[in-house]
């Protein structure tokens, strides 16, 4: 029996040191079909959720925005339009395959957004540099969420905002229906559409293991943010947390 610290990988318990590699394998596997995966998982609603995230970010032209675990670059693209040529958006992801998808998309769009491979728990940026940090559908895959939140808080300027868009706890009466969708239909669709049922099963399980709305709010306060509010979207299937650094 190993003495190493343990953490969750979906419903499995694994050594902490193994989680990043295992998550990496999932995302290497789904990178090329990531958009399809998001559309399947959210019935296309992830686009509206991301647009709403940008709308409530308060980001202005000239602002500096960090997109953590930015994957295919959807939010970086929206924020790049918002900050304009005088602003700066930096796209980051720990996973090289996902980052390559996002970077190529930005280039295809003619947007000069730097893409940087880095660990969200050890962001290679100075203190108080960004006006806004966003992590969308990425926090639940991180091994030490508390460390990642603390580091995202560190790189924010006073008055800056941390936005966390993530699957969350659905409204209780809908839970049985949502469970059936997540654990029966989703892996089946993953198998049919991407020939990758295991990755989709991990994604469904990781959603269930993620902290609920109030717990995540407290984690953000514990990370040093002065105030946190959250929006339930689609009856809590997804929540957008907005924290202010004071």
């Amino acid at each position: 029996m190993s003495d190493n610290a343990k953490t969750h990988f979906g419903f499995d318990t694994v050594d902490e040191q193994d989680k990043a590699r295992k998550v990496g394998e999932v995302f290497h596997s789904v990178a090329r079909k990531y958009d399809l995966m998001n559309d399947v998982m959210s019935a296309g609603m992830h686009r509206a959720w991301k647009r709403f995230t940008v709308e409530v970010s308060g980001v202005r032209p000239g602002d500096k925005v960090l997109d953590v675990a930015g994957g295919s670059g959807d939010l970086s693209r929206l924020f790049a339009n918002k900050v304009g040529p005088s602003g700066q958006v930096i796209l980051t992801d720990i996973n090289a395959s996902m980052l390559a998808v996002g970077r190529d998309r930005m280039i295809d769009d003619g947007k000069a957004v730097p893409a940087l491979q880095c660990d969200a728990e050890k962001l290679p940026f100075p203190d108080q540099y960004f006006d806004c940090v966003i992590v969308a559908f990425g926090l639940r895959n991180m091994t030490h969420k508390d460390r990642a939140l603390a580091d995202m808080q560190r790189v924010l300027k006073p008055g800056g905002r941390l936005l966390v868009l993530e699957f969350s706890q659905v409204w209780k009466p809908l839970a049985p229906l949502y469970d059936a969708y997540s654990f029966k239909l989703l892996p089946l669709m993953g198998k049919l559409l991407a020939n990758d049922a295991d990755s989709y099963r991990y994604l469904a399980e990781s959603i269930r293991m993620h902290p609920d709305q109030e717990t995540l709010k407290q984690m953000m306060l514990d990370a040093g943010l002065g105030k946190v509010d959250y929006y339930n979207l689609a009856a809590g299937v997804v929540a957008l947390h907005k924290g202010w650094k004071t």
């Binding site: 006006d131 905002r161 709305q213 109030e214 709010k217 105030k227 509010d229 959250y230 907005k242």
Partner: peptide, 17 residues
Amino acid sequence: LVVLEDGGLALAGESAE
């Protein structure tokens, strides 16, 4: 309502203070 940092307005979330 919550005032956004760009001078916009939005409906506040579920746990607004």
